[in-house]
Simulated assay, not measured.
Amino acid sequence: MFLIQGRFIVGNKEFEDAFSDRVLFEAWQQYLISSNKDVPETWTETAISDLRATCVAENAKFSKEIRKLNSGGKKMTKPILGRAIAQRVNPEELPETLSSLIELLK
């Protein structure tokens, strides 16, 4: 975790990249199911992992590219994905940097 000009940096580049592929996959999958939407065939843990590696190699925005894996699903925005992650993630699955930030805020 880094503090730069009053901002905490949680992920490598973005909030989403701080979470594991499994957490991202399961959080959005559960969100779609609870919204009575089909989970796109492109939304898989392997696809998320491959996309993450590509984004790192090409210095691309993971948060923008991950939306493409949700083609045909319910609209994905950062706030909606953040809420889906919050509803799914267990405390032991939180990235260490985010756990440290939460502790500082207590």
Results as ranks from 00 to 15, higher is better:
Asn59Lys: 12
Val39Met: 11
Glu103Leu: 15
Phe19Ser: 00
Gly6Thr: 01
Ser49Thr: 15
Ser71Asp: 13
Ile102Gly: 08
Gln87His: 09
Leu24Met: 14
Lys64Gln: 13
Asn12Gly: 14
Asp50Ala: 05
Ile9Trp: 05
Leu3Ser: 06
Ala27Ser: 11
Ile9Ala: 11
Ala47Met: 02
Asn36Trp: 08
Thr54Ser: 13
Val10Arg: 02
Asn36Met: 11
Glu103Asn: 10
Met1Ser: 12
Lys75Ala: 14
Glu14Val: 02
Pro95Phe: 01
Glu45Met: 12
Ile85Gly: 01
Ile85Glu: 03
Gln5Ala: 15
Thr46Val: 13
Gln29Ala: 11
Thr42His: 01
Asn70Glu: 00
Glu58Gly: 02
Pro40Phe: 10
Glu65Asn: 06
Ile48Ala: 08
Glu58His: 13
Met76Trp: 05
Thr54Leu: 09
Arg88Met: 09
Trp28Val: 02
Leu98Gly: 05
Arg22Met: 11
Pro79Ser: 00
Thr42Leu: 15
Ile80His: 03
Asn70Cys: 08
Val89Trp: 04
Thr42Asp: 12
Ile33His: 05
Leu104Tyr: 09
Lys106His: 10
Asp38Thr: 12
Phe15Asn: 05
Ala84Gln: 03
Ile66Val: 14
Glu58Tyr: 07
Pro91Arg: 02
Gln5Ser: 14
Lys61Val: 02
Leu24Arg: 10
Val56Ser: 09
Pro91Cys: 04
Glu16Lys: 04
Arg22Val: 09
Gly11Ser: 06
Phe19Thr: 02
Arg52Pro: 08
Glu92Gln: 08
Pro91Leu: 03
Gln87Leu: 15
Val10Trp: 01
Thr46Asn: 13
Arg88Cys: 15
Ala47Val: 04
Gly11Thr: 10
Glu45Lys: 15
Asn59Cys: 04
Gln30Cys: 11
Met1Lys: 07
Phe62Thr: 06
Ile9Cys: 07
Ser49Gly: 15
